[in-house]
Design a protein around this nucleic acid. Structure first.
Lengths: 347, 347
DNA sequence: GACTAGTCTGCAAACGCTTTCAGCCCGGCC
DNA sequence: GGCCGGGCTGAAAGCGTTTGCAGACTAGTC
């Protein structure tokens, strides 16, 4: 690998001149230098540049689990924008463990110009590492208990969950089950509260034993659904995220529960194959790729433009994607007849 | 941010001594230095270390599309092993475009110690950038037309596809359709050939018009299936990857094709919700996370141990995951009755 | 021709660290 | 007491860039 000095020697100029040429300034020996660069196949050493400039061009991205389709889409969105702006992405998974989150932060701080972080689920306290100078930080999808003065991209968890509740109430359900995520996490708590709030507004309360607090993982959804089906099953259930929805559906299939005939089913987050499932699953859907793109845009603005703007909080709307997994309760006291439409969406 | 020199000054020793202390050697003033480090909250500047050592601790990972569940799993596997070995992951998506692949290589070379690359689908020629010194390289899932002298992790495309063919033949199908990936790509061609070869071994040939060459994307599968359904539909179809399978299933659903009654369906790659679909889809499945972990292990070995071993070629076995999407043809001349078992798997 | 203004150039320092080298100190040995 | 060897130490060079500074050269003006 040839260096700036090699080029300079070959072109018979000083390294400084070559450096200036590379940064676009006008020099006398431009032709000779260009030629030297070409013959040597020189390309600047990014590490050395970073050392001088204090800028790495890397963005750290810390997510719980890249194999969760939601986060995969988010990262896709981040990637698109980051490439536009010539940043690289340094990716870490935390597996939702605070310890691994600390490891990731430790590994990334100093190597990245900025961070996009989805806090691990079992960490509602701000990691010590963030006290250090990390450069701009964007929180994505979740927050810490303590409100940090940084840009944040969230989805309207309360609104989305409430919409789901209102919808279920509207088509006649009175006996509802809920499989929530950890209440220590922002989305876990907000979706939980939002759903219950929506029901309350419709004059419905949920029995204690029909509330299951899961872990946002497939297994949590499975266990939760088994739990709900064990005794007096509700006529409809709300599942708080995609992974748990998959588990819950598996439990339903295993137990021979017919959706929506025996049970109406609605879940937060998109499902990859939502439209292909039989029945297609009604979801509170979100634009995950856009969430990532937005987070990266905010970051880019701070890195490039005025970095001292006050923190921005972006709360993106969800959409209720009506499919075929919800219907009026067959044994309950439906207030009217309602037919869920396939494929269409409502705000 | 404090530097080594700051620590040295505070502890009244030379920078060299602090550096030695940090690298674990025994020094006289150990206590004083440790204390200085603590009070200053010092942590070494990774960039400067890289500049000296020529080692970044970063691994570049270039995949077509992180939002494809297969690649998400692969990256997950890479991540697990990379964290164990204290490497960071630099992720790039190519969207299967050679241009973006070049961009990614350009951005990564020099900043990473090694590369894991899944060549973009429209690039069967080795990118020029790889001629430069990139450090160890591992090809994953795909190869270039020209065989590169580097470690490679593949899946047994031919074997898997042939297994699918044999199975379909065995349960009585004679009239088969195939939706392949681009034949310019390794897996596209090998799965195509493998499937046809498997059929040939069973004395079956496929009519020209029942072969559709897709693009490995959702839309390709959809269009391909529509195409097959348009005229004389086959009694069974093989779809060459997960994304196209999703599209194909969408087409089936849309056209009211009942699986497996009207059409037996088998696809390469796992499907997220394969078990939840109605019917559950029989697939040629693979251990994607393991593929990633293996690739990263190979890389780690080269980076840490003897780097001059001859290139290794790992071809991982697939498994035929029998579910409910295949059955004996209802109108064809089934040679015997065969009931696909749900959930079980066979080698 | 002498001066000024403007453009380009090279030197050298700096970024923060590691590592070689020579020197110091100490203890042990003859 | 003199010598040797081992263990620590600090000075300094170097990794590959960028950049402030001062000097050199060009061109333009009177």
């Amino acid at each position: 690998m040839s260096t700036l000095a090699d080029v300079a020697r070959l072109a018979q100029v000083s390294p400084a001149t070559v450096s200036r040429f590379l940064s676009g300034r006008k020099i006398r020996a431009a032709e000779a230098v260009q030629q030297a660069i070409d013959t040597l196949g020189y390309s600047p050493n990014a590490i050395a540049q970073s050392l001088k400039s204090g800028r790495t061009g890397n963005i750290g991205v810390i997510v719980p689990d890249i194999s969760n389709p939601y986060f995969a889409s988010v990262v896709k969105g981040i990637d698109v924008v980051s490439r536009e702006r010539a940043y690289n992405l340094l990716l870490c998974n935390t597996d939702d463990s605070a310890r691994r989150q600390d490891q990731a932060l430790e590994a990334l701080i100093g190597v990245v110009d900025a961070l996009i972080l989805t806090p691990a689920i079992d960490s509602d306290v701000v990691p010590a590492a963030l006290a250090r100078d990390t450069g701009p930080l964007v929180l994505l999808d979740r927050e810490f208990a303590e409100r940090l003065p940084c840009d944040t991209v969230l989805v309207d968890n309360v609104g989305g969950a409430r919409q789901a509740a209102t919808y279920l109430a509207q088509i006649g359900h009175r006996d509802l089950g809920i499989i929530s995520g950890p209440l220590t996490s922002t989305p876990g708590r907000l979706r939980h509260d939002g759903f219950l709030q929506g029901l309350r507004e419709s004059g419905i309360t949920v029995a204690e034993e029909k509330i299951y607090i899961g872990d946002f993982r497939e297994m949590g959804g499975y266990v939760g659904m088994k739990h709900l089906l064990a005794e007096e099953p509700p006529t409809a259930v709300f599942v708080a995220n995609n992974l748990m929805a998959m588990g819950a559906l598996r439990a339903c299939k295993e137990s021979g529960v017919r959706i929506p005939h025996d049970l109406s089913f609605i879940s937060f987050d998109d499902l990859e194959l939502a439209n292909l499932l039989e029945p297609a699953i009604t979801t509170v859907s979100r634009q995950s790729t856009h969430e990532g793109a937005l987070a990266m845009s905010l970051l880019a603005q701070r890195l490039e433009g005025q970095s001292s703007q006050p923190p921005r909080r972006c709360v993106l709307e969800t959409r209720l994607s009506l499919r075929d997994s919800c219907a009026a309760p067959s044994r309950g006291l439906a207030s009217g007849s309602w037919v869920a439409r396939s494929g269409s969406t409502a705000s």
